[in-house]
């Protein structure tokens, strides 16, 4: 079986020009694969580079060396060298990303924030909103909030809106950065369920989860990021 994500020897260094040009090596030699239908969890202490690796795979951080192979519409694209247009196409059709925080757009109603990825993918608005409503309902966001922009919601509510937006499109790869960090037990259980459903659909997932219990419930395999520590 061909891996959905195939990272080989990837490396990342930040050069901080405003701090006298010091180089801050983050990771090197990053090598692992994620197969369809499995959830790989990145482990390691804070600052080990877990989020950086996730961002490199999303094309949000540049990759200084190595290769980030992504299976996109039947062919493999190296995101480390892809053109911006290709990266956008990969994000539209292949990779979803659930970040830690919701970057809310002012004035957009919660239901539309969640439905937007489906509409962008070509689904009509009523159907997209119906699916958004189902997911918001599962994540215990009361219907009276759906027409409000999420900017004024609590941290936990915003994160659940963010999760709904991230889980709604049917993309073959999903990156999860601490999806359960500020959720209560009931909502954590919903996320575990959602991950299990995605696995059954054959989605390849790469996650960062600090909660041991959640990690135990969703991880098929653990990749220890400390082995990719860049020598300072």
């Amino acid at each position: 079986m061909t891996a959905m994500i195939d990272v080989a020897n990837a490396s990342k260094t930040f050069t901080m020009h405003l701090q006298g040009g010091i180089a801050l090596p983050v990771v090197r030699g990053v090598t692992f694969q994620v197969q369809p239908g499995e959830c790989v969890v990145l482990s390691g202490p804070s600052g080990a580079g877990k989020s950086s690796i996730l961002k490199m795979i999303f094309g949000n951080y540049r990759c200084d060396g190595g290769r980030i192979g992504i299976r996109h519409r039947g062919e493999v694209i190296d995101l480390a060298t892809a053109e911006p247009r290709q990266v956008l196409n990969v994000r539209r059709a292949t990779i979803g990303y659930v970040s830690q925080f919701l970057r809310a757009v002012p004035r957009v109603a919660t239901i539309d924030v969640v439905a937007e990825p489906l509409i962008a993918g070509g689904l009509n608005r009523p159907d997209a909103q119906a699916r958004a409503g189902e997911l918001l309902h599962r994540l215990n966001i009361p219907e009276r909030l759906w027409q409000l922009p999420p900017a004024t919601f609590s941290g936990g509510e915003q994160q659940r809106v963010n999760i709904a937006r991230g889980f709604i499109p049917d993309l073959p790869i999903l990156l999860l950065d601490e999806p359960t960090a500020s959720l209560d037990a009931a909502n954590r259980a919903v996320v575990v369920e959602l991950v299990a459903e995605k696995k059954r659909q054959g989605v390849a997932m790469l996650a960062i989860v600090h909660d041991d219990e959640i990690r135990h419930l969703i991880a098929d395999r653990i990749v220890d990021v400390t082995s990719f520590a860049a020598a300072a």
């Binding site: 930040f14 020009h17 405003l18 961002k55 094309g59 949000n60 951080y61 540049r62 911006p84 990266v87």
Partner: peptide, 14 residues
């Protein structure tokens, strides 16, 4: 030059 979120989140030039 590059993807907007890449240039803003991981700027390279001083």
């Amino acid at each position: 030059t590059g993807l907007t979120d890449q240039v803003l989140d991981d700027p390279r030039e001083p």
